[in-house]
Design a binder for these strands. Structure first.
Lengths: 97, 97
DNA sequence: TTACATTTGACAATTAGTGACAAGTCAATA
DNA sequence: TATTGACTTGTCACTAATTGTCAAATGTAA
């Protein structure tokens, strides 16, 4: 099945819990407009905010972090025909560190 | 075998061709100090510069681009215990686009 | 020593990212 | 159809990160 991105994930979980954007915003101490943008992928959350969101939305922090990091990689590679080769190469390099 | 990073690659190729930093710098229209930093990984080349370097050093542009992009991913994930999961997730997401 | 290649550190310039605010849309309902 | 509440959008200011230059330092070979 198709994988969710970060924004989709936190929106789904927020709606499941019946939280309003303004409540999430308050918990993260940011403006409502900003969390709205984060959910729609117009802005990126900061790493610290990922932890707060995981706690608030009761999802495993690491799982959410994977999605958040993966967003960055998808951003970097989505227009790249070389994407697959890049990932293979990166994997190899990270492995033999 | 261990994979080369971007800086190591261009340094090796430059030396193989017997070029001086100042010659490479001139070709890219940047300061010698900057190409020195790029080779040592202290600075990142810009995408446009990767193309120029590939031509100058007579290496396949795509191959060099893979290494350059992969540098960015390694930077992002090298301190991440979740690296492998992130790569798998990214691969999947890029695949079903 | 001189000459040349490369590296380093400090700084300036440029670019990208972050967040707030105010105004806007949209839907439900009084 | 006016009001309300949730969310979205555009713009701006501020900050942080990146990119590049310059001058000085280091290394090295003749």
């Amino acid at each position: 099945m198709k994988q969710e991105n970060f924004g989709e994930t936190i929106r789904r979980l927020r709606e499941k819990k019946g939280l309003l954007l303004r409540q999430v915003a308050a918990a993260l101490e940011i403006d409502t407009a900003l969390i709205s943008k984060i959910e729609r992928g117009e802005r990126k959350a900061q790493k610290e905010q990922v932890g707060k969101l995981a706690e608030l939305l009761e999802i495993n922090t690491e799982e959410l972090m994977v999605t958040w990091l993966s967003d960055k990689i998808v951003d970097l590679l989505e227009e790249e025909p070389l994407a697959h080769k890049v990932l293979k190469n990166s994997e190899k390099r990270l492995k033999d560190k």
